[in-house]
């Protein structure tokens, strides 16, 4: 039974294709609430973990289980009535646990949502409060966050047990500038980077907590946000988005940019600009990068997907009849793209 009293899964196994995207199914939250985020999480009920979709509106977070390739069942919904939900924080290798960031204009609280193994009742517990500026789920069941008091900044790692209980906290050395985004460094196990309010990339050693380096991104692209980083041949490659970039004749209006930093000298060089194809307009609103694929919602309401290996815009997904796209996320496994609209609809596309 795919029907629930106030939620419904609408399936669609049609062959609608937009470039390299194929619509697999559509989730519709009939509560009519505005969708604020969407994500995926591994959920295990009877010894077999399944990749489930998590949708969030301001007052609730819902878990959707796949029944078949194109049908979904609303498994449970946590109601969060004290503070609005701002985002879901994916924890890459955690099962049966959803982390949500709550607050008014800014994140004021991080909460884990789980289901009791004893009586299947829904549970919530607060793991951090404060003026939280950035948060990211890391591998090995960890969560990093930056938070600000009037005088100082705290950058903290929280480790989780398999049961979802948080058991260990560790503080990293904080830079003077506020950290607004984090990314793990692929290729170096203990390296973490962040981007700051003064447009710098900072590098930490997660094991020792040391702040290793601060490198400036450049003045042409203010308020850069890091999405992905990898180390190769002695260089640190960082994928940045530029919500406030100015259009230039040579590069158009790049949504993402790949920059190579030499961490030893702090010098950098642009490697790749990811812009829209000629004839298309729109600025970056929000997006996500996974492996070699970058996706962004543009001001035009269209979703654009780029191939980071080729540097090309791979496909454009125009707004659906229900309205412009407002959210885009990659699934934790395989190449599925989750595209959300403000009315709570989430379309699941396979990307090839």
């Amino acid at each position: 039974n795919t029907m629930m009293p106030d939620h419904m899964a609408v399936s669609w196994s049609g062959s609608l294709r937009e470039g390299s995207l194929r619509l697999v199914s559509k989730l519709k939250d009939l509560s009519g609430s505005c969708a604020v985020d969407v994500s995926t999480v591994w959920w295990e009920e009877s010894g077999c973990p399944e990749l489930c979709v998590v949708t969030a509106c301001e007052t609730s977070v819902s878990l959707w289980k796949p029944l078949s390739s194109d049908q979904w069942r609303n498994m449970c919904t946590w109601h969060l009535t004290e503070k609005p939900v701002i985002q879901i924080v994916p924890l890459p290798d955690v099962h049966n646990l959803v982390c949500a960031a709550l607050g008014d204009l800014e994140i004021g609280e991080l909460r884990v949502l789980l289901c009791s193994s004893e009586d299947s009742s829904l549970k919530q517990s607060v793991v951090k409060t404060g003026n939280i500026k950035a948060v990211l789920g890391l591998k090995d069941r960890r969560l990093v966050s930056s938070s600000r008091t009037f005088q100082e900044q705290q950058v903290e790692i929280i480790s989780f047990l398999e049961t979802g209980r948080n058991n260990k906290r560790k503080t990293l050395m904080a830079p003077k500038e506020t950290v607004l985004a984090f990314a793990e460094v692929e290729g170096i196990r203990d390296a973490l980077i962040g981007t700051t309010t003064v447009n710098s990339v900072v590098v930490w050693n997660l094991k020792t907590g040391q702040l290793l380096k601060k490198m400036h991104v450049g003045y042409s692209y203010p308020a850069s946000v890091c999405h992905r980083a990898y180390s190769d041949s002695g260089l640190l490659f960082v994928v940045l988005s530029h919500p406030h970039a100015k259009e230039s004749e040579s590069c158009g209006n790049p949504a993402f940019r790949v920059i190579a930093f030499n961490p030893k000298t702090g010098r950098s060089a642009g490697v790749m600009f990811l812009s829209l194809p000629p004839g298309h307009t729109g600025r970056y609103l929000e997006g996500e990068v996974k492996d070699a694929s970058a996706a962004a919602v543009l001001t035009s309401g269209t979703i654009a997907v780029w191939d980071l290996l080729l540097g090309d815009c791979a496909t454009l997904l125009p707004p659906e009849s229900g309205g412009p796209w407002s959210l885009v996320r990659w699934s934790a496994r395989d190449s599925y793209l989750l595209a959300g609209q403000k009315d709570g609809s989430v379309c699941v596309y396979s990307y090839s």
Partner: peptide, 23 residues
């Protein structure tokens, strides 16, 4: 980008910066 633009490159930059940075 070439080495001359970015300065001398080290394959062990993470370990070297960890040794140089304040504990």
């Amino acid at each position: 980008c070439s080495e001359s633009d970015l300065g001398p490159i080290s394959l062990n930059w993470f370990e070297e910066l960890s040794l140089e940075a304040p504990p």
